[in-house]
Amino acid sequence: MLDAFSRAVVSADAKTATIGESELAALRQYVANGNKRLDAVNAIASNASCIVSDAVSGMICENTGLIQAGGNCYPNRRMASCLRDGEIVLRYISYALLAGDASVLDDRCLNGLKETYIALGVPLQSAGRAVAIMKASSCAHISETNTPGMGGTRFNKMETIQGDCSAVASEAASYFDRIISALG
């Protein structure tokens, strides 16, 4: 597993070069935006169950066949597996966002995920859709653009100091996209 710093080390070692000014500039960016990143991880971790259950409900609303007899979210046992997997995926995304590098996501979550789902007969299209909804709601939580209308009874605003979190939100979005394309 690598983080933003050890990623720089591994790529410098491949060319036996020292890490100089140009590479350090990117790392200083990570340091400078450190608190935003930690707030973003906190926003995901603190709203995880809401993000996951909302995504799975949304996926089912769009395709109600999933909870009818013979559907992949029927009976409760399989629905529970679905919610569990949603939480696992979101958890690895929070790790990747904390590390600033996708290696933990690739090694521990995506490696073999598609093959496993195919073997188990999980519809990849629906799984990808659930991840896409998680992406939208996570990015809304990170950039605090979530509204009571979107959140309903579980609306929760983190009340962090205002600032521009678009960079870290788009980084988080890239990790969700990585999963969607791995399932595609």
Binding site: S6, Y95, L98, V104
Partner: peptide, 28 residues
């Protein structure tokens, strides 16, 4: 490669939990 972040993530993953407040504190 061992660093503060990877240590924190490895521990959180072994326990199957999201990064906690104390994890974030040590990264900070």
């Amino acid at each position: 490669m061992k660093s503060v972040v990877t240590t924190v993530v490895t521990a959180a993953d072994a326990a199957g939990r999201f990064p906690t407040q104390s994890d974030l504190e040590s990264v900070q």
